[in-house]
Design a protein around this nucleic acid. Sequence first.
DNA 1: TCTATCAATGCAGTTTTTTGCAAGTTTTTT
DNA 2: AAAAAACTTGCAAAAAACTGCATTGATAGA
Lengths: 249, 249
Amino acid sequence: MLKEERQQTILNEVELHNRILLTDIAETLDVSIDTVRRDVKELDSEQKLRKVHGGAISLGFTTSSTRNTNIYALAEKTRIAEKALSLLKEGSVFFVDGGTTCLELARLIPADLELTCFTLSLPVAMELSSKPKVTVIFIGGQISKDAQISIGANAIHNLSEIKVDFSFIGTGYVDSQYGLTEFDWDIVQLKKAVIKSAKKTVLLCISEKLNSQHRYKTCDLNAINTMITELEPENDLLKSFRSHDIRLL
Amino acid sequence: MLKEERQQTILNEVELHNRILLTDIAETLDVSIDTVRRDVKELDSEQKLRKVHGGAISLGFTTSSTRNTNIYALAEKTRIAEKALSLLKEGSVFFVDGGTTCLELARLIPADLELTCFTLSLPVAMELSSKPKVTVIFIGGQISKDAQISIGANAIHNLSEIKVDFSFIGTGYVDSQYGLTEFDWDIVQLKKAVIKSAKKTVLLCISEKLNSQHRYKTCDLNAINTMITELEPENDLLKSFRSHDIRLL
DNA sequence: TCTATCAATGCAGTTTTTTGCAAGTTTTTT
DNA sequence: AAAAAACTTGCAAAAAACTGCATTGATAGA
């Protein structure tokens, strides 16, 4: 049997069953395990599959990046995400909200940091599932079509059963007087549950949203421990927030 | 024997068997191995076949180029998904498993059908969230990095609290005797829970997986109500499945 | 007819590739 | 913490590939 043929068979098996054992392949092809090991190593370096301890797994749809290029105010959001990253330490257990700013945070999480992350957001979960050292736990529930996040009573109930070190949340509107507000009643209920399930809450928010408000209230400003904007903490736009007991980043 | 003639014979053999050994050809043509080697080298440079260590393989045999970008055996999986669609009716409440075949089913769901769909799979949930009339409920849990699905005790517990009309599931391996088997213990636990939470179970499975088995057993074949392959139900490959109480599609 | 030319072929010696094995280490499981 | 499985590295035998060279045989031109 030709080497090429053998590798083709291995690829086929991986594609077919998503996952294979080296020992199984060695047996069915009737070659030594070393040969299979070498073949799989080679195919791995050619990016045709992924070698894991004891076998190999298909690349499958894991590589498809859902990168949406036209995010509004991406530069600002990236700046915010970078600042937020500095709060993460090895072993942190935290929650990440939906929204493009939080998604940006998820993207920027370094590959070598061991973390445990809870989320309600499908895109965030997808993004994080590509980071080998991050444990991702998805809070289930009915999926909201616009935001691609879990909503509803089920999601809120699931949130009530966890307690994380801190959570990164976004908001529709924020005002130093009226606190965090939203357009949507369901979302407010959800955010309340998120805040309740975290020891500390970090608000990620571009400066454009400052001093705006809407119909339904999520919480007062003192429910927030840290607020991160793309501005320097000394910036005048943040003046009205400095009177509260909030750490500005 | 002329050189032209010989090379034509070599090409023939390659096309016929997809691959050849240099030593075999040398023997059947009764020329030295060096001659064959030179011929094959020449044919390779003319792009008529691909020379590899020890022999040559047909150009059509190397599917590696399309493999990374496309889903393996997409045509077959699409065919299966189409058949599965015929089971869906307005108002159906059902479950969709992970895997590329089930993802294909999610893709093909028409926009005008009102449905309620439970799933564990992030890609399936993403796909379905773009269909306005489909209510999507995601079963939360820890996210498996390979498969991008919820796994673990939490997911299984969440599954135990629902009951759907039918569920579409995939499997790693299926055999008419041994039933459905998997590579992975965790996945087996999950699939058992899925089957338990559905009134009827529909297996989506490309024919290549028929008559294969692995270590851990998900269920017997009679736990499956309907089995869908890309083949016609009358096909001989399905003969051994006809003796069971299964509807073949 | 004879001979120089040249592609085609086979052979011998050397190099490269492939493969399996063994010893020692790391990782995973119990 | 012990045991089992998997991995790494180095090595050696075998197969295949490459190189240079000699032989063959066909062919064109003297």
